[in-house]
């Protein structure tokens, strides 16, 4: 039977990507660097997904940004804020709880 999962993956990825971004922005990075580091972790991220997400996180006050000129080219650097660190620990707690629930349910299914 064909599983209809159109649109499910981006939806699930959104929350996960948010945690990833808040984790990697412990040190200052620009967009393309983030995409490269996610790719190195084996997690390809669409470019047009990352930037709107960064904008939302900045609007929430969880990250902040500034422009720098490097080799005559502007680059926008992002870094996590104190509020972002608080949000990140809450997200990680939730994520750990969710993981435990899923592991438990998988064990139940496999029994």
């Amino acid at each position: 039977m064909e599983v209809r999962n159109h649109g499910v993956e981006p939806e699930m990825n959104r929350g996960f990507l948010q945690i990833l971004v808040l984790l990697v922005l412990e040190k200052s990075m620009y967009g393309y660097q983030m995409i490269k580091s996610f790719l190195d972790l084996g997690y390809p991220v669409e470019e047009n997904t990352l930037y709107p997400l960064l904008r939302r996180l900045e609007k929430n006050g969880w990250i902040k940004s500034h422009w720098e000129i490097e080799k005559e080219r502007p680059k926008k650097y992002y870094i996590i804020t104190d509020d972002g660190k608080l949000a990140r620990s809450s997200f990680l707690d939730i994520w750990k709880r969710q993981q435990k629930i899923i592991e438990f349910l998988i064990m139940e299914v496999e029994k």
Binding site: Y30, G31, Y32, R73, P74, K75, K76
Partner: peptide, 8 residues
Amino acid sequence: EIEAHIHD
């Protein structure tokens, strides 16, 4: 942002 990314 988009332009900077494309050049990057």
